[in-house]
Simulated assay, not measured.
Amino acid sequence: MKFTASLLAAGLAAAGMAGQATAQDVDNLSVAYEEGGRYYTEDDVPTYNIGEDGTVDWLTYSGFRRYHSECHVCHGPEGEGSSYAPALKTSAIDMDYYDFLDVVTNGRKVVNAASHNVMPAFGDNPNVMCYIDDIYVYLKARGADVLPRGRPGQREDKSDDIRAAEEACLGL
């Protein structure tokens, strides 16, 4: 599939190196550079960009929409968690980006005496995988407490690069 090959091949291949550092070891929030409407940290990990006036970058805005179409049923509104599944807004801060991709793509099962948690695999769902970075940066902004609950009011326009990547991923 186009989205697993294009999004995850390089990312998961780099996971061995990236997974050695924890979120506490690196700044996984601050924008180091922008490329085609996407914002990245020094370690080339996607991140959010929120202006002083509250304007959010396109991926954060799109991530709000995608999260609430695919993830909130289990993980609660705005990444706050529920009685069924944990809060994801903290996962995007505390979990390595490549580990986050791996869990969303392949799922995870944690069964022990205290809990029985099953995260289904979304690797074949283009409504998740084509927008995984969008969801991730939205959750990072929520976890960093820089994005309030609710639909973002102001947003940047979708760049041509983001539009082209979306169309390619969806096969349009």
Score class of each variant (00 low, 15 high):
65 R>T: 13
73 V>G: 12
72 H>Q: 10
56 V>G: 01
58 W>M: 01
39 Y>Q: 02
43 D>E: 13
72 H>M: 09
51 G>S: 15
72 H>N: 06
73 V>L: 13
54 G>W: 13
60 T>G: 01
50 I>D: 04
70 E>R: 13
58 W>N: 01
50 I>P: 01
74 C>H: 07
49 N>C: 04
52 E>T: 05
44 D>C: 02
46 P>M: 09
63 G>C: 07
62 S>W: 00
57 D>L: 07
71 C>L: 09
53 D>Q: 08
45 V>A: 06
36 G>M: 10
46 P>H: 07
42 E>I: 13
74 C>V: 08
48 Y>N: 00
67 Y>M: 06
46 P>E: 05
62 S>C: 08
47 T>G: 05
44 D>T: 06
44 D>F: 05
57 D>M: 08
36 G>Y: 15
74 C>W: 03
71 C>V: 06
48 Y>L: 06
52 E>M: 11
68 H>Y: 12
41 T>F: 12
53 D>P: 06
66 R>F: 03
64 F>L: 13
42 E>M: 12
53 D>T: 04
71 C>Y: 02
55 T>W: 00
73 V>T: 14
39 Y>T: 00
53 D>I: 00
47 T>D: 03
36 G>H: 14
59 L>E: 09
50 I>S: 05
55 T>Q: 05
70 E>S: 14
38 R>Y: 14
71 C>G: 04
48 Y>A: 02
37 G>A: 08
73 V>W: 14
49 N>V: 00
71 C>E: 06
67 Y>V: 02
50 I>C: 04
74 C>G: 10
